[in-house]
Nucleic acid binder design. Structure first.
Lengths: 198, 198
DNA sequence: GTCTATATAGAGATAGAC
DNA sequence: GTCTATCTCTATATAGAC
């Protein structure tokens, strides 16, 4: 019945991480929400650095699994991009930011292992996006100059920035940027394959 | 001799804010660096919210003065954009982030007044960039589709994202994005007006 | 695995002397 | 304006009972 406490801690901690930053939540916040004591949290994650690392690893595993699923379902490059943007948009709707943003802003306040885990997550995302863009270009779906790697980098940082500033400026900011990204990749204003999940 | 303590506090606090986040520094850190006591810091800024607000106001005033200078010197739109990018690049070099990033990530941990001040800074930056892009387009220096406001938004969020991820991924990330932004605005790979300050 | 209890340290903030 | 001294609260973490 109760190894799932660990999972509930992770889920709650992730919510807190993405809405308040790593330095903005404590074991007390987690324990309070789950109606347990802080000592129980320490049993599962002895130090906060352990918890932070676990959160980033979990996030990365989830991303890899998500990307693997899209591949299994043979989703088109355009569909992949749309799904990815939708993923980020959901964060905006939930008033959250991306864990990469948190680590970058609070870099001096997190352990080296945590920032290394963030680096791996970033590498995965960039690599995945590069493949999507390159295969989409080969299929004549996307149109852009330069290397797919360079374009993937620009798309990712643009989404990161939009995700973040949307918190101050409203979700219209995110949607405006999203439209621009599509246009810069040579897609029509409304994605032809559908899947522009709201 | 000693109203400049206030200025020294602001300068030190800004360094800490941009390198560690708002929740990542304390009055003790400031006092230690200036070799004064925390009570002296509280004299100038009774609460941390007061200090945070002052930091954002100061940042905004500096930006406005900086933009005004460029205008006085009749710097071309291309030069303005280059100067702006250089401004951000210096933050990367100093391993800092933008105050807007800090406020966005730690939004729940800052006062309403602080986030309102960040909003005003963002508005100023967007408005300034919009004018630069629009006047540059009229002078046939920039080439882009859509409104200047929409393009300004994309350029700004892209720089924000690059500034942030460069902290994890290295300054090459920032430079690659910078090159892409230039290209997307129809500029040659190397800016013709010079002023690509290193 | 979870609890109570507690240790330690740091943060934000105030009072009052100089 | 800046200091010493102190207060209160919170955060991280551990010990040991159940």
């Amino acid at each position: 019945m109760r190894q799932d406490t660990r999972q509930r801690i992770l889920a709650t901690a992730e919510e807190l991480l993405l809405s308040r930053g790593f330095q903005g939540f404590s074991y007390h916040h987690i324990a309070e929400r789950l109606d347990i004591r802080t000592a129980a949290v320490h049993y599962h994650f002895p130090t906060k650095a352990d918890l932070g690392l676990a959160l980033l690893q979990r996030y990365r595993e989830r991303f890899r699994w998500w990307a693997w699923q899209l591949r299994e379902q043979k989703v088109s490059p355009v569909g992949c991009l749309e799904h990815f943007i939708t993923l980020e948009r959901r964060l905006v709707e939930a008033n959250r930011v991306c864990p990469l943003s948190v680590v970058c802003v609070e870099l001096q306040g997190v352990s080296d292992e945590m920032s290394a885990a963030a680096q791996r997550l970033l590498d995965d995302a960039l690599h995945w996006l590069e493949i999507v863009l390159e295969s989409g270009r080969e299929a004549n779906l996307f149109h852009f100059d330069g290397s797919a790697a360079a374009r993937a980098l620009v798309v990712l940082v643009t989404l990161q920035g939009a995700l973040q500033l949307a918190r101050l400026n409203g979700i219209e900011t995110f949607d405006a940027v999203r439209a621009q990204i599509r246009q810069d990749l040579g897609l029509p204003a409304i994605a032809p394959t559908g899947r522009v999940a709201s």
